[in-house]
Simulated assay, not measured.
Amino acid sequence: MTDMDGGPAVDPTDPGLQPESVDSTDSTGSTDSTGSTELVERLQAAVLAVPGVSGLHGGPYGALATYLPGRRVVGIRRRDDHTEVHVTVAAGRPVRQVADDVRRVVRDIVDQPVRVTVEDIA
């Protein structure tokens, strides 16, 4: 195969040329758009505002994240059937209560089940 300039053409379906598979779909199955970017940013702000949450956590190896154009938001991942939120809880705070509060604020924003995982105590 050659391209229009006579050089070798690049086959976009060549598996060796494909980027690493990254789940960057929103709940509708489409890639992130301004709407889903705003949604993830709202979720991030709401979770970080919960008393007792000291931060979002990327899970094992920091892999749990939502990939947005030019950046990623660790600790939040939207799926077709649920939203995952992974947090670090401040020491001395009631872990179960903080997790329930996180679940509540996220459910106010998304209309699907919410899975909250406390990854660490800081």
Rank of each mutant, 00 (worst) to 15 (best):
T28F: 07
S21L: 14
P69T: 13
D100R: 12
L56S: 04
I109F: 00
L56F: 04
D81A: 14
T25M: 09
S30V: 02
G92N: 14
V40I: 11
G35W: 10
G62A: 00
G59P: 05
V22R: 08
G7Q: 15
G6F: 04
A63T: 08
E20V: 03
G35V: 12
A122E: 09
V50H: 06
I109T: 02
Y61C: 07
D23M: 03
V114M: 04
P60Q: 09
A99E: 06
D111F: 13
V85R: 07
I76E: 00
S24W: 07
V106C: 02
I109M: 01
P8G: 15
L64M: 09
E84M: 04
A99F: 15
T31L: 12
P51S: 05
L43H: 05
V105M: 00
D101H: 09
T117D: 00
V40L: 08
P113L: 11
T83D: 07
Q112F: 06
A46C: 12
S30G: 04
G58N: 01
G29I: 06
L48D: 01
T88Y: 13
P113D: 15
A99D: 13
S21R: 07
A65L: 11
A65E: 09
A49S: 06
V114L: 04
T117C: 02
M4Q: 13
R96E: 13
T25I: 07
V118M: 10
L68V: 02
P69K: 09
V53Q: 07
T66L: 13
D108K: 10
Y61T: 13
G6S: 10
M4P: 05
E41Q: 07
G59R: 06
T37V: 05
T31G: 14
H86Q: 09
V50C: 09
P15L: 00
S30K: 07
A65N: 14
S27E: 05
R77L: 05
E20C: 00
D23N: 10
A122N: 14
V116M: 03
R77F: 02
R96H: 12
D81W: 10
V105W: 02
R93E: 15
L56W: 05
A45V: 03
R103E: 12
M4F: 14
V102S: 04
P113R: 12
Q44Y: 11
T83Q: 15
T13Q: 14
